[in-house]
């Protein structure tokens, strides 16, 4: 009569995936059921931003950064940046926003961070058609390097997991971090090759730019249209940095989760 052995016997991995999926789709459902424009919002922001940058850098200033067609060049960096900045800033509230649910539900706690990365990742994927549309209109040529997108996607996901696992628990104890993260993200926007290419940096910065993991990742995305943007040194460093950050994140998360659960 206790029955339903199925629910008990399901493996941990499938329960993990199931919970992750439920929370991710919950976020998307809430977003799309409460706003009339729904999906449009997730592409409107990068569209408006790239419109502004396109205007500033091609109409106001005479641009000598980036590559033609500049709008495609911009979007290749801006769309993944939206994923990065959205997930990183959301992870500051990973525990605080869900305190009630976390206090009453026992699921692996990394899910509270990873679900944010997943839902922002979905929005990123959903915004790719915008890039495709602009590429068609401007006549940008797609190269076989587009096959590297899954690699870029994986490295970025690893990077975000590391950042999220570090930021989420620490914010619970140091609320100031929430604002600090926002500030760092604003800085990082200009410190990353989004409006410009890594190659446009002054000579002295080339080596150090590799240590911004986003340089390698955005280079990979851009290689789909601009193969010269691919720099294997950058990609290697950014993959290594992402893995190191993930390692640090896992240690911090494991050691602080006990205190986090008491605090929220």
């Amino acid at each position: 009569m206790v029955g339903s052995a199925g629910a008990v016997q399901r493996s941990n991995a499938s329960r993990y995936r199931h919970a992750l999926w439920l929370l991710t789709t919950r976020d998307l459902k809430v977003r799309y059921s409460t706003s009339a424009l729904g999906y449009l919002w997730s592409i409107l922001d990068p569209l408006v931003m790239s419109g502004i940058y396109w205007f500033v850098f091609t109409q106001v200033f005479s641009r000598d950064v980036g590559t033609e067609p500049y709008i495609v060049f911009l979007l290749c960096g801006l769309l993944p940046w939206m994923w990065f900045t959205g997930a990183a800033s959301d992870s500051t509230r990973a525990f605080l926003a869900e305190a009630k649910l976390i206090r009453s539900t026992k699921i692996p706690r990394t899910i509270w961070v990873f679900r944010l990365i997943a839902s922002k990742g979905f929005e990123f994927v959903a915004s790719i058609p915008v890039l495709a549309a602009f590429a068609l209109v401007t006549g940008a040529t797609l190269t076989p390097w587009v096959l590297l997108w899954p690699l870029a996607f994986v490295i970025q996901a690893i990077l975000l997991m590391g950042v999220g696992l570090i930021v989420a628990p620490l914010v619970v104890f140091f609320r100031d971090l929430e604002r600090a993260v926002k500030l760092v993200l604003r800085f990082l926007f200009y410190a990353s090759p989004i409006v410009y290419a890594s190659a446009d940096l002054p000579e002295g910065f080339h080596f150090w730019a590799a240590f911004n993991p986003l340089s390698g990742i955005f280079g990979l995305y851009r290689a789909a249209f601009f193969p010269e943007q691919l720099d294997s040194f950058y990609v290697g460093v950014s993959a290594a940095m992402s893995l190191v950050l993930l390692g640090i994140g896992l240690v911090i998360f494991r050691r602080s989760i006990r205190a986090v659960l008491k605090e929220i």
């Binding site: 919950r26 459902k29 809430v30 059921s33 409460t34 009630k100 649910l101 206090r103 009453s104 539900t105 026992k106």
Partner: peptide
């Protein structure tokens, strides 16, 4: 089955 803060997981907008 924890009957603790049972309404905690419910989402207002859904």
């Amino acid at each position: 089955a924890p009957l603790i803060e049972i309404t905690g997981g419910f989402v207002n907008d859904l």
